[in-house]
């Protein structure tokens, strides 16, 4: 049984369809990467899972519990770190995390163990007894994430959990997510940093304008939507190097591309043939989808 099952979910704000017939599921131990441009519907989808957003139609089930008819029971299975940081600035890091652990039913030694483990995983040990108001934005973001994960719920909704954090702490957050998934949590992870999705080896659902534009494993998406790209490095008069990238169908296209450089061909200092990155796949799918939507 899927931990999270969304079927035909449609959410509207007035006339605007924020989500249109979205279906997806997340199994235990799986990380689902939710991708999409701003306003694609990622946060609305997560809000629907905790019952904060009322759908026009469709169903959301968490651990088999229907969110619409039994929202509180469904929420008991969810840890949610929404996009906006939600912490208690006058409490210490430890108090924030411990209070949330207690609220989810953990007590005494079990609570202390869960808090210690989570603080350590998110590199918060050293600042555990500082008031949150004295912390940087990135540190607050980690506290926010720790509160959602401390009780190890079956389903985790992490909405852009690495915004504003430095590379080292981003790595810590990603490692924490991978650990939780290895322990059996189903994780819905929204981000704009596509390399994170590759590091998490996540299944991807790409949302655009409220509809699922593409889905699948990263490798599958790269295979399906990726193209061969030629990067041409051109040297300038003052020693600077610029790179021109062109998508090609195959090696036969190469002469035409080189010819297209014209007089710049003399400046060619290097050439690399590679597959599209996930960023490029993302841009391509969004462009194609918008073209299709505009055409319709």
């Amino acid at each position: 049984m899927a931990v999270l099952e969304v079927r035909g979910l449609t959410v509207a704000y007035g006339d605007h369809l924020a989500l249109n017939e979205v279906s997806l599921s997340v199994e235990a131990g799986q990380v689902l990467g939710l991708l999409g441009p701003n306003g694609a519907g990622k946060s609305t989808l997560m809000g629907s899972v905790v019952g904060a957003v009322r759908p026009r139609s469709g169903t959301v089930r968490v651990c088999g519990v229907d969110v619409a008819s039994r929202p509180r029971r469904a929420r008991a299975h969810v840890g949610y770190a929404e996009q906006d940081i939600a912490v208690f600035p006058t409490l210490t890091v430890r108090e924030n995390v411990a209070d949330w652990a207690a609220l989810s039913g953990l007590r005494s030694r079990e609570l202390a163990g869960a808090v210690a483990r989570t603080l350590s995983a998110l590199l918060l040990d050293d600042i555990a007894d500082r008031q949150v108001r004295t912390l940087s934005g990135g540190q607050r973001r980690r506290v926010h994430c720790a509160m959602a994960t401390v009780s190890r719920p079956p389903l985790l909704l992490l909405d852009e959990p690495t915004v504003g954090v430095d590379p080292a702490t981003r790595r810590a957050v990603l490692d924490h997510v991978l650990t939780l998934a290895a322990e059996g949590a189903a994780i819905c992870y929204s981000t704009h940093y596509l390399p994170e999705i590759e590091s998490l080896d996540a299944e991807v659902v790409l949302l655009n304008k409220g509809v699922v534009a593409a889905r699948g494993a990263v490798a599958t998406l790269l295979r399906r939507y990726g193209r061969t790209v030629v990067d041409l490095r051109l040297g300038g008069d003052s020693g600077e190097v610029r790179t021109v990238s062109s998508a090609v169908e195959g090696p036969d296209d190469l002469p035409a591309i080189l010819q297209g450089l014209g007089p710049d061909l003399a400046r060619l200092s290097g050439l690399e043939i590679r597959r599209s990155s996930l960023d490029e796949v993302f841009e391509r799918v969004v462009e194609d989808e918008e073209g299709a939507l505009d055409a319709s």
Partner: peptide
Amino acid sequence: WNTWNRFRA
């Protein structure tokens, strides 16, 4: 503090 939504979730 945005914690009302957090409680509501």
